[in-house]
Design a protein around this nucleic acid. Structure first.
Lengths: 240, 240
DNA sequence: GAGCCGCCTTGATCTCGGTCAAAGATCGCC
DNA sequence: GGCGATCTTTGACCGAGATCAAGGCGGCTC
């Protein structure tokens, strides 16, 4: 197994989770058995249905969590109600901003979501005594920063058509990463309103651009959510 | 001195720098004297003039640096040349993405800039043996992520007028933070082209919106770069 | 299965910001 | 201090995407 492969594998392991032995094993290099036990006692697996609010902007941080299944959207709103989605988190991402007293963003379940929650003080204690754990979280934070900056290019400089293509490309690579060849099949985890809020567009523009991509045979959309991308490279060429 | 004040003070200390004893003292809690000496031997203070490229996207990372003076812009470009500035760094920010082999962004001196550079391996060794140093860098990374997400709202959901006001507000609070009362005076560290690339606008639109703010007496612009903001709160009200 | 509700699509029109063009500032250089 | 190069401002016009307005399509209840 070469180094880059190992990196990818490593980042697939959630930072913490009580309910999954196999995943726990991945933490053995980071936490000792006492810590793993403490962790198991303080974590709790919770299921949320689509639309549920997991954490509210400007509210105190109560706990951190791992996304075990589903998609979480992170958003911010202006006073007059305009909304921008500033990040999407997929399993097995870590959810929550370390060391801050209140949430900088609102977190909502985009699809049905399983979270493995751990109280703020418990995780922070663990981080304080485990540099390796902080290192893991640093790696995720750096990845999130990369993603955010990549998306800033999309928001600031791409056309509506390129934005929608970029969104589909992102979701395709996140939700169907194991697929070989250029074909990708998945269900959209976001409503049209969410997509618009992610892209800085209106739902009408999103809808029109999706129709155009369908007319151009770049995607096949069945019903409202099911998407098939026959050729990922062709989609990528439309991302600007 | 209360806790929040202490936090602010702490984040004002650069992560590393050989050439400034006063700042070095701030690191004493993080690095021991052997490490400080090693650091002093491997760091180098370099001056760049405005426009100089400090690091290029997709090129190998050779060193990290502290911004000691001036403003650094981080940008990304699309293949056809469209450009987006994805971050600004002010002294005493740390410059560089830890642990990655190549730069994710291009870094350029927006104004004349003094950097205190340290070779990649030297810093990474120091980080590996100093959890407290990684913690310091984690805090900066989290702050950068917050800033990036805040700016995504500006890029995705604000009007041109709000974008320009938000830019001036950002620069005012960064460059003249010590000022009391609502008045702020500073020189813009960016050209109109840079401002446009930061805001996802054209230079013509930036120029028109600046003229409008001047006509509305929200800012006083003398020459091309000198800006006076008589009432910061009035400017903030235009940020959306 | 009729009717309703929420979500999505499509069309018509409007508007904000982009594009194109030209004139005005600013700065460095000799 | 004049002159050219570069950057900025302003104006006229255009077009991508927003807004306004109907309809369509499921999925739900009764």
């Amino acid at each position: 197994m070469d180094a880059s492969r190992k990196d990818i594998h490593n980042s697939d392991i959630p930072v913490l989770c009580q309910s999954c032995e196999a995943r726990h094993k991945g933490m053995c290099g980071v936490l000792d058995s006492v810590q793993l036990t403490a962790l198991a006692r303080s974590t709790r697996m919770i299921r949320y249905e689509a639309g549920a609010e997991l954490a509210a902007e400007s509210m105190p941080v109560e706990s951190y969590a791992n996304v075990m299944h589903g998609v979480v959207k992170l958003s911010k709103v202006l006073e007059d109600g305009r909304q921008q989605i500033v990040g999407l988190q997929f399993a097995p991402d870590f959810l929550g901003r370390l060391f801050s007293k209140e949430n900088a963003v609102t977190a909502e379940a985009a699809s049905d979501v399983d979270l493995c929650r751990v109280p703020k003080p418990a995780l922070e204690r663990l981080v304080a005594e485990n540099p390796a754990l902080e290192h893991r979280l640093m790696e995720q934070t750096l990845r999130e920063l990369d993603d955010a900056r990549e998306w800033m290019v999309t928001l600031g400089r791409k056309t509506a058509a390129e934005k929608v293509a970029s969104f589909l490309y992102l979701i395709a690579t996140q939700l169907d990463p194991a697929a070989t060849g250029g074909r990708r099949v998945f269900d959209l985890p976001l409503t049209r309103t969410d997509i618009a809020d992610f892209l800085g567009l209106t739902i009408e523009t999103v809808s029109r651009q999706l129709s155009k991509l369908r007319a151009d045979r770049v995607v096949i959309i069945i019903g409202i959510r099911h998407v098939e991308i026959p050729d990922l490279a062709a989609l990528k060429r439309r991302c600007g």
